[in-house]
Simulated assay, not measured.
Amino acid sequence: MTDLRPLSELGRRICILGPSNSGKSTLADAIGRRIGLRVIHLDQFHHLPHTAWKPRPRDAFHALHDAAIQENDWVIDGNYSSCMPQRFARATGLILLDVSTLTSLGRYLYRTLFDRRRVGGLEGAPERIHMDMLRHIVVATPANRARYATMYDALPLPKVRLASTRAINEAYTSWQLDRVRA
């Protein structure tokens, strides 16, 4: 089993970063239920509900983000580098999901084809395969993984890096998390 720091050491304001389709939202949901934190899915703040993932205006997204991080207790999943500095300034812990591009691609295809109850999905926007997302996963994910690893190494927060599906599964077991929503 991977040597993990206890979940309690990450505090009451936890950021989860990682490539698209790495399991950030599912992990955030499980942590939130386990230790009683508000779960914030940044994709839901960034996109307008009942659209085909149409982004909100940048100022509106930042206002939602900045108001949410002022609360005392939360677990937040998503990247959105334009508002990372203020998020990291408030965070008490960080989890990096550092899964491979192939894993991200497989998870994306699975969730769009078979998982109709996706955690962190956009209200009123059914999951569909989009060429833009496939391109993003294949082209942007490798560079993003390197960027997130550099940020992770530089941040002076209590943190956990989960570098494989196996490591993520071990974290669920060690932290006594349940993937299934109640």
Rank of each mutant, 00 (worst) to 15 (best):
E71S: 13
S81C: 03
P6L: 12
Q176V: 14
P19E: 07
S82D: 14
L96G: 03
S82Q: 04
R58S: 09
D59E: 15
L96P: 05
D66W: 00
R118S: 00
H41Q: 15
S164K: 11
P158T: 07
N72M: 04
D77R: 03
F45D: 14
L162N: 06
A163P: 11
V99Y: 02
S174P: 03
D29M: 14
P55W: 08
A52Y: 01
L109Y: 05
E170I: 05
L177V: 12
L177P: 09
Q44D: 11
I137V: 07
A89T: 11
Y148W: 12
G36Q: 13
R181K: 14
I95P: 02
R58M: 10
H41A: 13
T150E: 12
H46W: 15
L96A: 06
N169D: 15
H136C: 00
D43H: 13
I16N: 02
H41D: 13
L37C: 10
M84T: 07
N21E: 09
S104L: 02
A60P: 01
K159Y: 07
G32C: 11
L122K: 03
Y172T: 08
R166F: 04
D77A: 07
F114H: 08
T112G: 00
M133Y: 04
F61T: 07
I129P: 02
K54W: 01
R12Y: 04
T150W: 02
Y148F: 12
H41T: 13
H46R: 15
R5P: 11
D98A: 11
L134C: 05
L37Y: 08
A154C: 00
P142R: 05
A63E: 12
D29G: 12
S20W: 01
E127N: 01
I14L: 02
Y148M: 08
T150K: 08
R33W: 11
A63F: 07
D178P: 10
I95E: 03
R34C: 12
L7E: 06
G120E: 00
A67S: 12
Q70L: 09
P142Q: 05
L162S: 06
C15L: 13
R58G: 00
L48M: 12
V138E: 03
A68S: 09
L102G: 10
G124V: 06
A182H: 07
I129K: 01
H130N: 05
P85M: 07
T141P: 03
A89K: 14
N169C: 14
I14P: 02
A52D: 15
R34H: 15
I95S: 04
R116T: 15
V119H: 03
N21L: 04
A60K: 11
A28I: 05
T26M: 09
L48W: 07
G32T: 13
L64G: 09
L102R: 13
L122A: 08
A60L: 14
L177W: 11
S8N: 14
F61H: 09
R116L: 10
L102A: 14
R145I: 05
R90I: 08
